[in-house]
């Protein structure tokens, strides 16, 4: 194989990884603040993907344009889930929270299955087969757009947490729950907002990724697992860690697909996860919590 192929695949993997990273960023934000692991994360991703598909097939709206409204819809979904279902479970044991979210995930997957059927769907935009060429490097246009959009959304999110009052209040909640209560923050509402923001990341990521992958309802659990792998690799609760983990997993999967077989790529992602769990359980950029 010529050397350029490796480079092309690597760059494609990194760009896809950025979108994965944005999805995982949502999981990481939710865990970092609410301390709940969203076992329905990938299922929410598939909901966003189907929304993008619907908008495209019915109204010919480009997924990149739909990114913002879909993120808004997912924000509402996330906010409602936290407010109605998860807030009453905040002080329950981990396995109770897990079961609650697994139940939600099961319902989501199968409602999608009932509505859309098991067959794969995708979008064919005018630029689906375009590519950019820089020297020897050839990259799909869809991946470039999706990757760039993922960076833009992540940047907005970083700015939100750093510079806005609400963002800072949410960070205060994450650092010190009791302290946040004492200074009079409405923690439950901030939790709902956080879950909404995490879901919005998923919404944006889902809208983008339909440019790159076909969607089936069964993709939900696979993406949940992928999001876990990414955040644990990068560091659960760390925002830059999620993006870095996404890139790393995107790259690993792409290279494994090239060198071995596409069906074996998840094995390499899991291999990476096991190694990180054993040797740096706090993740690459995470802090160890006792």
């Amino acid at each position: 194989m010529p050397a350029e192929i490796y480079l092309n695949v690597a760059v494609g993997g990194i760009l896809t990884g950025l979108v994965y990273g944005l999805m995982a960023l949502g999981l990481s934000v939710i865990f970092g603040v609410v301390r709940v692991v969203n076992f329905a994360h990938g299922e929410m991703m598939t909901i966003a993907m189907y929304l993008a598909i619907l908008a495209f097939s019915a109204l010919k709206l480009d997924p990149l344009v739909m990114m913002v409204p879909i993120a808004a819809v997912l924000f509402a979904l996330g906010y409602a889930m936290q407010a109605a279902l998860i807030n009453p479970f905040i002080n329950r044991p981990e396995h109770s929270q897990f079961i609650l979210l697994v139940a939600v995930a099961i319902i989501m997957v199968n409602v999608l299955l009932i509505i859309f059927g098991p067959d794969a769907r995708n979008v064919m935009t005018s630029y689906s087969f375009d590519s950019f060429q820089v020297g020897p490097l050839i990259v799909d246009a869809t991946k470039v757009y999706a990757g760039a959009a993922a960076i833009a959304v992540a940047a907005v999110l970083f700015a939100f947490f750093r510079f806005t009052y609400v963002g800072q209040a949410i960070r205060a909640c994450a650092d010190n729950y009791t302290g946040a209560l004492v200074v009079g923050l409405n923690v439950k509402q901030l939790y709902a907002l956080t879950f909404g923001i995490g879901a919005a990341c998923v919404g944006a990521a889902g809208a983008m990724i339909v440019l790159i992958v076909d969607v089936t309802p069964a993709l939900g659990p696979a993406y949940t697992l992928l999001a876990f792998i990414i955040v644990i690799t990068g560091g659960l609760g760390s925002m830059p860690g999620a993006l870095l983990g996404g890139i790393l997993i995107g790259l690993t999967e792409a290279m494994a697909g090239l060198l071995f077989s596409p069906s074996a790529k998840s094995m390499f992602a899991f291999g990476l996860l096991v190694i990180v769990l054993l040797f740096r359980p706090q993740g690459i950029m995470g802090k160890r919590v006792a």
Partner: peptide, 26 residues
């Protein structure tokens, strides 16, 4: 031994099952 507990332990168990799934596929 490596003190992987709670949610991390649960995900580790998923990882090994997935390993086996892909492994047996081949």
């Amino acid at each position: 031994r490596f003190r992987v507990g709670g949610v991390y332990f649960a995900i580790l168990t998923i990882a090994f099952a997935e390993f086996a799934r892909v492994g047996f596929d081949h």
